[in-house]
Design a protein around this nucleic acid. Sequence first.
RNA 1: GCCAGGUUAGCCAAGGUGGUCACGGCGCGUGUCUGAAAAACAUGAGAUCUCGGUUCGACUCCGAGACCUGGCA
Length: 325
Amino acid sequence: MERLLVIGGPTATGKTALGIRLAKKFQGEIISADSRQVYREMDIITGKDTNKFSIFHFQFSKNNFRLGYYLINGIRVWLYDLARPDYRFNVADYVACARAVVEDIWRRGKRPLLVGGTGFYLRALVDGVDTINIKPDWLLRGKLANYPVAKLAKDLQQLDPQKWRQMNASDRQNPRRLIRALEIASHRQPLWGVRGSPPRGVKSDQLFIGLTAPFPFLYQQIDRRVEQRVAVGAEQEAKRLFKKYGQNSVLGVTIGYQQWQDFFAGRVSRQQALRRWQSAEHAYARRQVTWFKRDRRIKWFDIRRNKWQDKAEAYVNRWLAQNAS
RNA sequence: GCCAGGUUAGCCAAGGUGGUCACGGCGCGUGUCUGAAAAACAUGAGAUCUCGGUUCGACUCCGAGACCUGGCA
């Protein structure tokens, strides 16, 4: 069976750096799993490991997305720059693109390394998502957006009592989740054809690596990264993109851009904006840890330890050696 | 030195005729997650400058002190 190496964990832990190192060692290519680096032009603030001289090598298209790679330290990094900031990229898009790339890499006899911090994307690709074929109904969403939570809850209890029962207290008060549940419930078609089976993740032998560290340490790393991004032109990038795409684009729901927008609008000082950007990244890292923690398949490496990369590499080596033919 | 204003959690900040658990926001802790996921949501901890007085009872009133801010020298 084909193999798939997955590297996850919170932001600012050096996932890409490890990925590149392992890719060099094991003839790999990196597939980014990042819900914001998929956007073109959003380079500095999302922390892409490219620069203005990097060249995008287009390879093939999939669902209207132009797939290609950047060469970083000689290693191919896929799934950056798939969409314009005024498009709303989503998991289904991601799975379609990532699948195509993984299979392409396998076909060429190389090893795919799935690297990223968007746990939902990672899981969707690896394990599959049952309801992934039910498209967003923007008309419905627009209508439901004005409903109070209590009304949404009541509707769902009527329309799909079973789903309601499965939801926990948090989700039952989350309008976005309720709306999605209603969207699925009102979609009369069977989820996956009459005789079909639920969409599965990519079939492969997988190894999961997680990078982490205690929060105080992560916060330091994050703060440094944010300052670096400011130093190389984060403000200008934010200003330019807001002007071009407006705040209703994905910029309005992306850490970093949001805080710069607050500064541009005069709501906060430059200093405060920086501080808030960093805090938003801290909170993001916490959510990521909460997400990844639940996945028992992950083998964790503490990035404060000496030679942790060597240990990770040895761990991968052992896996590759197993029934290697 | 004098006059005025102020002192409420790590930061910002509301409050009241003295009386149940002192409004919020940020930050911080914990968690949820199946086509918006860097999104959206749930949940927790944490405070009345010090001393004395009045009072059944003071964060709230009175006095003294400390510190901060502004004005006058």
